[in-house]
Design a protein around this nucleic acid. Structure first.
Lengths: 335, 335
DNA sequence: TTGAAAGCGCTAACAG
DNA sequence: CTGTTAGCGCTTTCAA
């Protein structure tokens, strides 16, 4: 395996110059650089990551802490971040924390310590303690989908966005509106359900609708739980004419429950979701679209800013948008 | 930042012993080890990854090359692999290759070189050239969802599995069976579509059914393309009574097209998918279940075997299973 | 713009 | 079981 010494020797420069040339540093003549690069290519030389890292003190890696890579939302954010980071020459190291034990272990052992130059944390509302542990690393940290004092974040406005969804239903004439998705306590301490519920309540208040606890059904953000939740709602003595599901996946489940119960959508029940999941268009689901890939890209961008100059923490809020599709329609006249 | 020398000094041992103790090597008395560990904990010392890596020649990292982390299948495999690797103390570095340019760049530059101890490649049928490039790294390589001479792989039997799906339809009395999903040429050179088509053709032959090219519709493995493909099939002069979609996502799209066209499922059309996607149960889709998380786990396991001892390449084929749900039913009498 | 040389902080071989 | 010591292969001053 060739070393930088071999490259330097054959290019007739010192290892220092070879190093500078290969890293694209400015203080090298074009001619020298070309010669070094050519020799490196001939020899198939690449800078060994570990030696470079030890000498420079940088790892050129970013850690990403993520509850479930397998879920569409998280996977998409990871993909967005990876794209930007690779472009910048940084590697992405994945730390999965699917449950409470792995999460605790992560923050207790902090395996990212001395391992990465920066950290991305997806959708984990951090306890003060966790946030401080991360901050103590003195490396850039960016949150996606949650916020914490003194840490950069990229997110959407959950309250306003869910309010937009519910307002769409109100504008269609619905007065009895179900809510699918507040589970208590939410797994991982997710704050999203609470925020989306606030948006729901806010619009009911705006519209002068008395909130009915009977219309709120808890469930995790999956199709299976969405189906069960909808079924329970249908079994109530006075079911709603429309429902807002806190995630598209729940909405998919809800649609299935409605099909089973032979309730026409949107004739007998309007359904709106949240996310604009990749399957939402195919299932003709009305929903709130949020930019998911872009949240990953943007978070990676903030990380790069902080890595390059000492950019101060920022809180970036990306826009969402109501997508009207076939599952929402006007309330029947007598509602 | 404390160094191993600080730990060694305070524990009154040499740095070598401290190193051995911290890495859990056997040649240390329990007492010494305890002392070293205590001091390390007090000082908040962790072995710096880069120094350790440079000295030992190991990176304790595994690269994973994946077309789209955001897709359910890939994300789930990544999650499976990550779980096993983290348990073994290895980090997972993600290399996304969503398109042809990034794929070419990956194999041309081989950014994993000198960066990881082993590589996992997801669902990229490698050209001989690509396989050789990887092999030339002289580090363990494991493929998931494809095979190559001299390289370990973990996969399912696509031909037998899709045959099982189609046989299920034949057993229900169907004779005109549509096929959704062969796109030509498939993106990334995926071989899966071809294999699944072979299973389809094999069963038609078994059952003495003449293949009808009109019943095969091309499309990528997404709901949108599944919907379009189904719509085209319905527009044929003599549509089938059942369809086999090569992926559940296509099947979801197909179901939507059928709903739009007011075709009863399974009364007017049976639909079977492939994968057992996380939404399949919620949408009551009959399908072929394949173990996805387990493929990731298993691939990581093979990697560990090869990393520890010089285990020879293996080809692990995981079982699949027919899952009968509500979208498949008997053919109408007069078919 | 280039070169010499001193680390970066551990691990591993060897000796005891 | 433990200590000594020579690297691992770069990057980065500092000087020229």
């Amino acid at each position: 395996m060739p070393s930088i010494r071999d490259v330097a020797k054959q290019a007739q420069v010192s290892t220092a110059t070879a190093s500078r040339a290969l890293r694209g540093l400015p203080a090298v003549t074009a001619e020298t650089r070309a010669r070094v690069e050519r020799v490196a290519a001939e020899l198939g030389y690449v800078i060994p990551f570990n030696a470079s890292s030890l000498a420079s003190g940088r790892t050129n890696s970013v850690g990403i802490v993520v509850p479930f890579v397998s879920r569409w939302f998280f996977g998409t954010v990871v993909a967005g971040a990876e794209t930007v980071l690779r472009e910048a020459g940084l590697d992405l190291v994945v730390y999965g924390v699917p449950g409470a034990p792995s999460r605790e272990r992560f923050f207790a052992e902090l395996p990212v310590r001395r391992r990465v130059d920066a950290v991305l944390v997806l959708c984990l509302p951090l306890t003060r303690c966790e946030a401080d542990a991360l901050l103590a690393l003195r490396i850039p940290v960016v949150l996606v989908g949650s916020t914490a004092d003194g840490i950069s974040s990229v997110r959407i406005d959950d309250v306003a966005s869910s309010a937009r969804a519910v307002r769409h239903l109100v504008e269609l004439g619905h007065r009895r509106i179900g809510l699918l998705g507040e589970s208590d306590p939410p797994p991982h301490g997710f704050t999203t359900p609470g925020l989306r519920r606030n948006g729901y309540l806010r619009v009911l208040a705006e519209a002068g609708i008395e909130p009915d606890p009977d219309l709120e059904v808890a469930g995790r953000f999956t199709a299976t739980e969405g189906e069960a939740a909808m079924a329970r709602l249908l079994a109530r003595r006075n079911p709603p004419s429309a429902v807002f599901a806190m995630s598209d996946e729940m909405a998919f489940g809800a649609l299935q429950a409605l099909r089973r119960a032979r309730v026409d959508v949107p004739g007998g029940m309007s359904v709106i979701g949240f996310d604009d999941h990749e399957l939402a268009a195919a299932l003709d689901l009305s929903t709130i679209a949020q930019p998911v890939f872009a949240q990953g890209e943007r978070a990676a961008g903030l990380l790069l800013d902080q890595l390059r100059r000492q950019a101060p923490p920022a809180d970036v809020v990306l826009p969402t948008e109501l997508v009207r599709r076939g599952t929402t329609g006007p309330a029947a006249a007598l509602n």
